[in-house]
Nucleic acid binder design. Sequence first.
RNA 1: GUGAGAGUAGCUCAGUCGGUUAGAGCACUGGAUUGUGGAUCCAGGGGUCGCGGGUUCGAAUCCCGUCUUUCACCCCA
Length: 427
Amino acid sequence: MKIPPVKGTRDFYPPDMARRNWIIDGWKKVSVRNGFEEYDGPIFEYLKMFQIKSGDEIVEQLFSFKDRGGRHLALRPEITPTLARMVNQQINSLPKPIKWFSVPRLFRAERPQKGRLREFFQWNIDIIGVDDVLADAEVIFTTVDYLRSVGLKQRDVRVKISSRKLLASSLKNVGIQETQLLSLYALLDKYSKMPGDTFKKMLSEQVMDESIAKKVINFMGSTALSEVSEIIGTNAEVEDAIQELARLKELLEQMGVWQYCEFCPGIVRGLAYYTGVVFEVHEFSQELRAICGGGRYDNLLHDFGGPRISATGMGMGDCVLGILLDERGLFKPESKELDYFVAFVDEVYRQNVIELTMKLRSAGFVTNFSYKAVKLSKQLKEASAQNAKRCIIIGEEFKSNQLVIKDMATGKQELVDYDKFLSELKS
RNA sequence: GUGAGAGUAGCUCAGUCGGUUAGAGCACUGGAUUGUGGAUCCAGGGGUCGCGGGUUCGAAUCCCGUCUUUCACCCCA
């Protein structure tokens, strides 16, 4: 009976695994060089933990089950709640600031489509305990640092930055009621996805007053911070949010990555827990869904039973990124490569082939030999297929203690003394 | 949950109006080559034409159902 793979999952054959590792190794390397430390948690948690942050609707969007003790558990759809739990547990003994990263395998029971699967990997970086946009700047810098390192240019990706503080204070300043904010966010989040007229129409359903609606539209369309106070007027709260974003821009300029970024009030981001700076990275033509998203979430640790400590972070999945890297031809995974392939001319030397192979392996060289007793040309073919850098050929010369070493790239070969070769291996 | 498209070899696909034993390229295995790889040539293995039913003398082909998958919507932590 043939069993198909489960919907929304991927099989990683060796070439796929090489690509996956290439992405993840890149994430880890950039995290570490930016001063983040790696952590991880269990792949399943109490279902309740995910409900705290995201509400009850989340339950049907994740894989949950009951264990034999009747506990309601779920495969993790994100790692931030685990992070909050872990940090809260040791909050008093952890040196601040906390700069942690993780590359969890996550699960979401959604219908798969382009750039979205049911099982995927997500790079997360978080800075906890720094109530300063400098931390937001560092999160954004680290994100760009990675994108840059894989060869994505300014013309490929844009970091779109906004602020929940600015959004809330601006909307209130033009006359939107506080109670209206959340439902309005959902619409504003779609601003860039729909034609202007459609947006206008849908906005008018929520905002009856035409002059207010017009201000909201102008605000959403603004691309420079300096325009904002002209459009929506100003007050202390608005001014404060603008100052914060201006400082963020200044910091990103100092860090040398502002050219990847732009101010974009349309970035709202789904859930309600963001409290400050928010950002998303999009592919330039906007044809793909967001490559990553992040922002400040100052209440989350408290929501998980901890102290009021500020936090900011970012998450980047491997699906959309993988599509983009593919489209741009930027994947450069290392293919399988052998240092040595050991071959024989006559089967009588087979034992010597095995012995030498094991010695090479013990010395740390990636080495293979043929399992089959086939002629030399076949063995060399196998070596070639396995990307061997060098072939060692054991033949007549071995009787006088000599090996033939063939360089597979140049085709040149030389005779070397066996004992000498071995002693050089050890050094 | 809603809508649209697609399912033929491991992969990408062709298959005429419904007509004999379902094909190609790539990949894989072997040979051409008994001490020299990548190229080339030759050969070979590999198929429940997604599955089930129906129409028909006859179905990969037409009809119905179903499953899977892709894409979009909802949602997106």
